[in-house]
């Protein structure tokens, strides 16, 4: 598959604390790839940094290439064309991402004006088509509604319509269904799957929910302590997790089928940024650590075809 985005050694530092410690990650055209990990592991920061959306106090180094063009340090005019155009992003809480004092239709037509130069009747017609596409019933009337008049699921559909307005090649969905109820989550995931198939855009799905990622993605990256610590095809990752952290995450998650078993909790918690271990970030919680784990940060290396892990003992 042809590469679309290529991230190399991406590092982000806030006030002296490192949030990202060297992320290497690729996204191919049209693929659905998942990023999982717990709060603070850097899965959202990776993409906010890549798109230049972090506050000015963040120090960013490394490389983010889109189709062979460097995005880090690119001029604002070029980033404005990328953000919302070639790469769109949707977030967990649609109600706070939408402007509460503007009608939802106007927010979509604004995106159409910015990214596709559409105006007036043409923009309104296209907004209506997008509302139909994302499954908002009675699109002609809902276009006139304000965000507070719509449910959480409907607002997320509006966000998706806005994201689609720029005809993106890549959609970054950051916990898109976390704030939604289970049956509404199923609707939105269904919609994203259908849109991806119809438009051929690539999808990066950021989630703390392993089940969501398993259902939606063909490839998955697992993050911990600001790095990718494992990456594999979805089926491989769930069947043969290589990194002890990934193994721990899978064992800690209760199942919906099979015998009920006691959960295997991972001891301790994520290390604080000011108290980071010198070697592998997971070493203090790891049940199979050795002296080597404290000495040096393990590199992400291939342990099987298309399967990489950052653990001295994996593979």
């Amino acid at each position: 598959m042809a590469g679309l985005v290529s991230i190399r050694n991406l590092r982000v530092r806030f006030d002296g604390n490192e949030a990202l410690r060297g992320v290497d990650f690729d996204v191919a055209r049209g693929e659905a790839v998942g990023l999982v990990g717990e709060s603070g592991c850097g899965k959202s920061v990776t993409w906010l940094a890549a798109l230049g959306l972090l506050p000015g106090k963040a120090t960013i180094t490394g490389s983010v290439m889109l189709d062979g063009h460097e995005l880090l340090g690119a001029p604002a005019s070029q980033l404005d064309h990328v953000r919302g155009g070639r790469i769109a992003m949707i977030f967990q809480d649609p109600a706070s991402a939408l402007n509460p004092v503007h009608r939802v239709g106007r927010q979509v037509t604004e995106a159409l004006r910015l990214h596709r130069g559409m105006d007036g009747a043409a923009a309104r017609a296209e907004a209506r088509r997008l509302f139909d596409l994302v499954g908002i019933p009675d699109a002609g009337r809902r276009i006139e509604a304000y965000p507070h008049e719509m449910s959480g699921g409907q607002n997320q559909r509006v966000m998706i319509a806005m994201a689609l307005a720029g005809q993106p090649e890549l959609l970054i969905a950051d916990e898109p269904t976390t704030a939604l109820d289970a049956t509404i989550q199923a609707q939105i995931l269904d919609l994203l799957r259908r849109l991806q198939a119809e438009t051929g855009m690539a999808l990066v799905l950021i989630s703390h929910d392993l089940g969501v990622v398993a259902e939606m993605c063909t490839r998955v990256g697992v993050m911990y302590g600001g790095r990718i610590i494992e990456e594999a095809a979805e089926a491989d990752l769930f069947a043969r997790p290589g990194h002890p952290y990934t193994q721990g995450l899978l064992a800690a998650r209760p199942d919906m089928a099979g015998p009920r078993r006691r959960l295997e909790a991972i001891n301790g918690g994520v290390p604080e940024p000011w108290n980071f271990p010198p070697g592998c970030a997971f070493a203090p919680r790891c049940t199979v650590m050795t002296a080597a784990c404290d000495a040096e940060v393990p590199a992400l290396h291939t342990i099987a075809t298309g399967h990489r892990a950052a653990c001295w003992r994996a593979g």
């Binding site: 989550q185 199923a186 929910d209 392993l210 089940g211 398993a214 259902e215």
Partner: peptide, 11 residues
């Protein structure tokens, strides 16, 4: 049924 079937699972 809808609620239980909506739970995302691996496998």
């Amino acid at each position: 049924r809808a609620l239980v079937s909506a739970v995302p699972v691996s496998g």
